[in-house]
Design a binder for these strands. Structure first.
Length: 376
RNA sequence: UCCUCCGUAGCUCAGCUGGUCAGAGCGCCUGACUGUUAAUCAGGAUGUCGUUGGUUCAAAUCCAACCGGAGGAG
């Protein structure tokens, strides 16, 4: 993997760049659709590629390890072949599941013991075993096992948790460097900054993560309940410590506004379930603000879905029709809304790149953010 | 003509040994959702309990008549 910065915004930390992988280039800043179990929910790979123009998508190690499991994944020749997606893939390690499935796991120095949410069976994830599984899945970028601490976390807990994540990271990096990819393409290993909402911890963590000299770095443990102000503050602090010449990935974020602010603070990569999940639940993101298509006000609105939208669904379907589909609980609703929202997110970062290249990002961002937060 | 059963929220119904009995599910309206245990979750509105009388301190609940519906017997 290679990262090259093209242009730095004069008034913010925003920058454009290119990540080169063996499965093609990624233009940054980028948003990465989430495809947890080898599928971006409700979206065909063809739509993902042709309509949404996704450059890279996510998979999840915990979920793919449990199902279909490493045997199937290995025989399939890795996730790219299995799901027939030949562009880049990034896999999360299961660190988020340490947080979201906290009642089903036990953390030790060694790793995390999970009881499967599918059949209750017990499994041990260690920094090393996660690398093994991620080798088998074969993503271009693979994440280190971390603990995503809950919010709020008291200082003592946050400190111990961050230290544990660092110890795991050391082991994970060592193991990663001793092992080889399985399918002939290179893989990059990204460590993850933790530290909860404590500045000192965040700085120490970012310094430790930077010292590992990996090809890219991630910021985790944010957008777990803290205010946006705190999130931006932590992100700003961390991004000033993490190396300039490597991509920075803010995990799990966020709203369109979060992403633009994150870009302004020097972040290059984002992922979030929001466009797909909220889409399934009837929420559409647009340049003018957010639409809850279930609202009665759209019942007889036969205008197109989104006049400023660039995906084919935006002009192909009407608001009244999508409202009907959502209310009737039709699968097609999730597909249409998912395509629209993901295409919007990819448009959002594409515009951001253009504005950075033109040197007008900051002004543009401040104007756009005002509208993005509105409720239509 | 007679007999039986039924009439409670928009829908399907629970409550009917009289006193937190005005309820549920669905629908409707609204909100939440940030490295997906989530086509999920949460909240809200709505009723002259068929009608009219009666018994009682108190009736959706007991009695009578009537109206409407279903079934049965002739």
């Amino acid at each position: 993997m290679k990262f090259k910065i093209h242009k730095q915004d004069p008034k913010s930390s925003a920058r454009t760049g290119t990540i080169k992988t063996d499965h093609g280039e990624i233009k940054t800043p980028i948003f990465m659709p989430v495809g947890t179990v080898g599928s971006v929910k409700g979206i065909h790979q063809r739509e993902l590629s042709e309509d949404i123009k996704a450059q890279i998508i996510l998979g999840n190690t915990y979920h793919l390890y449990l199902r279909p499991g490493n045997e199937v994944m290995k025989q399939a020749g890795g996730l790219h072949k299995f799901m027939n997606w030949d562009k880049p893939i990034l896999t999360d390690s299961g660190g988020y599941q340490v947080f979201s499935l906290s009642d089903r796991r036990k953390i030790t120095q060694e790793g995390v013991e999970f009881s499967s949410h599918i059949d209750g069976s017990k499994h041990l994830f260690t920094p090393e075993s996660v690398v093994d599984t991620e080798r088998i899945i074969g993503a271009d970028i693979i994440m280190a096992l971390d603990e995503c601490a809950p919010y709020p976390a008291d200082f003592d807990y946050a400190q111990k948790s961050t230290e544990l994540t660092h110890q795991w990271l050391k082991r994970g990096v060592d193991y990663f460097r001793k092992t080889d990819p399985l399918y002939g393409h290179k893989q990059a290993y990204f460590p993850i900054v933790q530290g909860s909402t404590y500045k000192d911890l965040r700085i120490k963590s970012a310094e430790f993560i930077a010292s590992m000299e990996c090809e890219g770095n991630a910021i985790g443990g944010l957008s777990v309940g803290e205010s946006h102000e705190v999130m931006y503050e932590m992100l700003d602090i961390v991004n000033h410590v993490l190396p300039q010449d490597k991509p920075r990935y803010l995990m799990g974020v966020g709203t369109p506004e979060n992403i633009l602010e994150g870009i302004a603070l020097g972040t290059d990569m984002f992922d979030c379930v929001m466009p797909t999940r909220n889409g399934r639940h009837g929420v559409l993101f647009t340049w003018e603000g957010t639409i809850n298509i279930k609202n009665k006000k759209w019942e007889k609105d036969f205008s197109v879905l989104d006049e400023q939208g660039t995906s084919y669904v935006d002009s192909y379907y009407t608001k009244a029709y999508l409202r009907h589909l959502v209310k009737a609980n039709e699968r097609l609703a999730a597909q249409i809304a998912g395509i629209h929202n993901l295409a919007f997110y990819l448009d959002l970062v594409r515009f951001a790149r253009t504005k950075i290249e033109e040197g007008t990002f900051s002004e543009w961002k401040n104007e756009v953010v005002k509208k993005l937060g509105r409720r239509l």
